[in-house]
């Protein structure tokens, strides 16, 4: 457990020192959302209608933006080899890096969401459900994305490949994430959607580190 925390702490420290990655993700998220009022016009009703979807799609793209570097920097400077020969299973290494990734990208996205909800005229009833859905959904995005990030190691133009691999897998999260908000705004309970999101997280939590670790072993051979 100490070793697990040591990796999380190191990745957080690296992210803080470099700074740019987290900031870039949040700026991308905000800017993408801001583009929509320009694109579809500032009609409040239209914006309110599309707000949950826009916020979710932007969050999804933003979290993917930083995925490429999840394992790549450690792979390039040899740190991944050493992490693989450290006395803890590679699955835990992958999990620690996923936790750090969520803390440095998923969490800032969550914090930026209220601002965008107001900007896009999201219905007030939907606000807390949107935050809850993002809270359940973004860790799943990091978990699924980590599998892709591990698979692209050693490939050229990995970033493009990563989006092709990962985006289709993000669709269920998107559907139920947006569905939860729409349900509440339409006057229905969002429990089912949130439970399904939680279910996806519970399934991805143990499986994704295994798949990512298997891909990492492949990359290191």
């Amino acid at each position: 457990m100490n070793r697990f925390l040591a990796i999380v702490r190191r990745d957080l420290r690296l992210a803080l020192r470099q700074g740019s990655d987290s900031m870039m993700v949040v700026m991308f998220f905000v800017l993408t959302c801001i583009l929509f009022p320009f694109g579809v016009g500032p009609e409040p009703n239209i914006l309110a209608r599309i707000a949950p979807g826009v916020i979710w799609v932007a969050a999804l793209l933003a979290s993917m933006l930083s995925l490429e570097r999840l394992f790549l920097t450690d792979y390039e400077d040899g740190a991944l080899e050493l992490l693989a020969t450290a006395p803890l299973p590679l699955e835990f290494v992958a999990m620690a890096k996923i936790v750090a990734h969520w803390l440095t990208t998923g969490l800032p996205l969550l914090i930026a969401t209220p601002l965008l909800a107001i900007l896009l005229n999201l219905h007030p009833d939907g606000f807390w459900v949107l935050v809850a859905a993002l809270l359940l959904g973004t860790p799943t995005l990091s978990l699924i994305g980590a599998i892709g990030a591990a698979l692209i190691l050693g490939a050229r133009r990995g970033g493009v490949l990563l989006s092709l691999l990962v985006l289709p897998l993000y669709i269920p999260v998107l559907i139920f994430g947006v569905g939860a908000v729409d349900a509440v705004i339409g006057g229905f309970p969002a429990n089912t959607h949130l439970l399904i999101l939680a279910g996806m997280l519970v399934v991805a939590l143990p499986l994704a580190p295994f798949a990512a670790a298997a891909a990492l072993r492949q990359a290191l051979e």
Binding site: L14, R17, Q18, E76, A79, L83, P87, L88
Partner: peptide, 30 residues
């Protein structure tokens, strides 16, 4: 893994961490 140290071709020194931080991370991990 607990009983070995491997030194490969790469030096894996993180550019933004100090020498002591780099080393203490690996020491704590190992």
């Amino acid at each position: 893994h607990a009983r070995l140290h491997y030194v490969g071709h790469h030096d894996c020194v993180k550019p933004v961490l100090t020498v002591a931080e780099n080393l203490s991370f690996w020491a704590r991990l190992h």
